[in-house]
Design a protein around this nucleic acid. Sequence first.
DNA 1: CAGGAATTACAGTATTCACTAAAATAAGCA
DNA 2: TGCTTATTTTAGTGAATACTGTAATTCCTG
Lengths: 97, 97
Amino acid sequence: MKDEQIEALAKILKSMSHPIRLKILCLLQNRELSVGDIRKQVETTNANISQHLNILRAQGIIDFRKEANFIYNRITDKRILEMIVKMQKLFCPDHKE
Amino acid sequence: MKDEQIEALAKILKSMSHPIRLKILCLLQNRELSVGDIRKQVETTNANISQHLNILRAQGIIDFRKEANFIYNRITDKRILEMIVKMQKLFCPDHKE
DNA sequence: CAGGAATTACAGTATTCACTAAAATAAGCA
DNA sequence: TGCTTATTTTAGTGAATACTGTAATTCCTG
């Protein structure tokens, strides 16, 4: 594994390694959600969620779609989805699909 | 996925998300290595590597074995090994075993 | 026991990160 | 247009992180 690849992967892991961001990614696993939807399941402010979403967007992990004055977010990087599935299997053996 | 599990997983990801630590984990994938061995492949000081190893130990990801005045490190958490394998497949498709 | 190699522990500093609060933008609706 | 809702942006602060350099520790070897 080349150093450049390690650097790139470390960045991705870093952006996933915050509890709020990791939870957002789990929530987005099967569906797209607005900031408000996420807000209902994560205890923090909308502004804070927006900031975390920005970090995930900058990393190219998620994308968004605008509808009325809602913004629906979804995971674009299939590799991230695969990683989340794998991590759930490894670290939450009782997880149900 | 429960919040506690997410918190725990986020911590693990965080400890893996530093380029030096991620490289160390890749190096330890198939063998055990001393600080000096690692030093030869990572451009930094021994003290710095030692500190990063401490972080991985505190997280329970790696373990060590003492022999003479060398300390050999190895990955203890099989789940971490599986994750590294998965990540290599996902992010380094040209990777050869 | 003295010398040296390998590793760790301990400050100090500089950078990065996370959260809060407040202001700004955008879009629907009366 | 004015009001409300949804989201983003910005600025500021306190905390966490990373690296450097140096001192301390451990343990082999002669």
